[in-house]
Design a protein around this nucleic acid. Structure first.
Lengths: 214, 214, 214, 214
DNA sequence: AATGAATGAGAATTCATTCAT
DNA sequence: TATGAATGAATTCTCATTCAT
């Protein structure tokens, strides 16, 4: 009997971890923590359940890894924007558009925030290095605001964190609540026209707020 | 030992329903759908599990009732604002402040939105009378916008639904994500000063956007 | 406030018992002992559950009463046949036809036998007076057999109980198993032609067996 | 203390299925569908409840498998009779005796028929391949009848299905109703003499009916 | 006497987690 | 290392039965 090549060999450990993580992210995002099933993660990632436990620990640990991954992805995306190379208002526009688009295209980020806050943030408090992941973003926004202020485009004294929270607020709600908004108000972000409208509205609003003080 | 009042007759049917609903709202908000436990709802409401089933049907039905209740509460709050009696910008200010405060003080509303959207909105689609519950609010905002426009305070052509979504966006995010925001950016809406800051920021931003077009 | 006449007054105790018994018979026959629901019996009989308990005792007692009622009904039917007035072979024919028709028209008898035997006969052992209910039937069949034998129509020495069991066997199976017979062999006693066929077959067979010994 | 053999590996999958099926057949036969307990099936088969669910699905599915198994067993028994090798009347005699003995020795077949018909035959309608399981039997009986007719032993034109229903009728009733028969008429098939009597009676009756038409 | 309201004791079913190989 | 097989510990939901009025 010839030993058939183990299908697991296809993966080195790193790839296996990545597959599991992707499946877990999607599962937790789709079903929430309580609704997520290890079985489905195993099936989706092509790994056996014991492998998942051996790579990540228990369900909580896997969830923590997935949450961290969601943050890593969005911060990586923000980094590739190279905001520092743009004119201040273009940078802001780019950040707004990236944020909205990322929320829409990678819906697991929004869902994971949803889930984690439902759980009272008990997990994120424990992911030690997250603040570090963020700091680059805050710094970069700070630089843009300073530059904008010194060029006279923006008003003085805007806090980068407050600005980011504001942008995130405007982008997050229509995505996070797209199902209820559709049912209750009939608005649907899947409709391209409505999405464009909202994108424009948000950008205008943020820029107006940054500038609008003569 | 005083004979404790019989747990059965303590409730008339209406009060029993209300107690169960309150407990369910809190439970679903705290744990999400999957994490909610009928046992805990029974304990918190002082009813036995079978009574809950007899009053509301199964877990899904109870969840639907709780979700509906969350909407009813916020719409009732909005109604008592009597926005129509206020000057347009005061009305907007009042609506913003009410919205933010309601989100903070009745955190189950935000959590229920969270939960329902995690579930893909399958329940809200089925709550037949919700649109009706909303329509009053939209109408009232429309009246204010019209009045503001005709008085020259606001610009023309603002869609009441878009305005409401914008306000809700700005109020929702910092509350819904208060745990992650605290961990990631160190911002904490429980801190009264930060709350005031945000309340001011949101009001300014909304009014600026309504007015700011010379 | 005028006291409306209690709807229960409609029933004197005897009628109430009868209503409950009829509903119980139908329920146990339709669902078996384990599947029967006191709730449904209450609804079908128009009585409250506590009334049922007060009239009959617990589920077991009610079941025993229903089982007894099923036997009483069939024995009453047999009595009204007045077999003694008929010629022997006519009497047998009448008994066969009555038995088959009763099984078909009062399906609860067959179902109750089914159910009771599934339960190991634990209840019928306890219904004290049943043998008495039967004895009339056996005696009457004995008389017919004797008369038939002395007239030369039947052979000697047929045991009335064995004859009754034989007739019941032939009538019972196609009714008791009508659902499986339909699925497995495509035979359906609801079809009048097939019913007539079987009725004729059974009568022929029984009479042939009683006579056929030259 | 000797290390007991691990309960898990005791079974290979095939044996585990068989053990569960045997336990389920016995449980459903003894208690009916509603009275059957998964707990008891688990205990009797030496498997844990979750294993049962994993092998068979839910209670309905397990019941369907048990019902099917009951049919498979009796048809297998009939096949090993090799009726085709026997003289026509010997073949009929063998079929009658096998049927009665099978009903007595494998009481779950009768009970399962009982149960399934109580349930309205909803399950058997769904067991797709059952008709196929039967067809061999009907064909074989048809061959015997034809042979018997051409040899002059039997009369012409007997429908094999009707014959089988007749035989089954005569064998089924005394077994299916053994508890009520014992209580009501004092007849007990466990008594060997009474069993022999009945066996003889049934065989005589069937053969008389097949032949008796000069 | 009559019943709406209440529940204890279970039933089926699920799922994170761990063996045994 | 890798996994098919196994299960303890819940969890939802039900139902015969009994109060309290």
């Amino acid at each position: 009997m010839t030993s058939r090549p183990s299908p697991r060999r296809r993966h080195d450990a790193e790839a296996a971890r990545a597959d599991i993580l992707a499946a877990a992210l999607s599962e937790f995002a789709d079903y929430g923590y309580g609704g997520a099933r290890i079985d489905r993660i195993a099936a989706a990632s092509g790994m056996s359940k014991p492998m998942i436990y051996s790579y990540f620990g228990d369900k909580d640990d896997l969830y923590a890894a997935a949450l961290r991954e969601a943050y890593v992805q969005i911060r990586e995306g923000e980094r590739t924007l190279n905001l520092s190379n743009l004119a201040p208002s273009d940078a802001i526009r780019a950040l707004v558009e990236f944020t909205l688009d990322h929320f829409i295209e990678k819906p697991w980020f929004v869902s994971m925030l949803n889930t984690e806050n439902l759980r009272g943030g008990s997990t994120i408090r424990v992911i030690a290095d997250l603040t570090e992941i963020q700091s680059h973003l805050v710094t970069e926004i700070g630089v843009i605001l300073d530059r904008g202020a010194s060029e006279g485009a923006f008003r003085q004294g805007v806090d980068p964190v407050e600005l980011y929270i504001t942008i995130a607020s405007l982008c997050y709600f229509p995505v996070a609540n797209r199902h209820t908004l559709k049912s209750v108000f009939g608005r649907d972000l899947n409709d391209a026209a409505q999405l464009d409208l909202r994108r424009g509205l948000i950008t205008d609003m943020v820029l107006a707020w940054l500038e609008c003080r003569e």
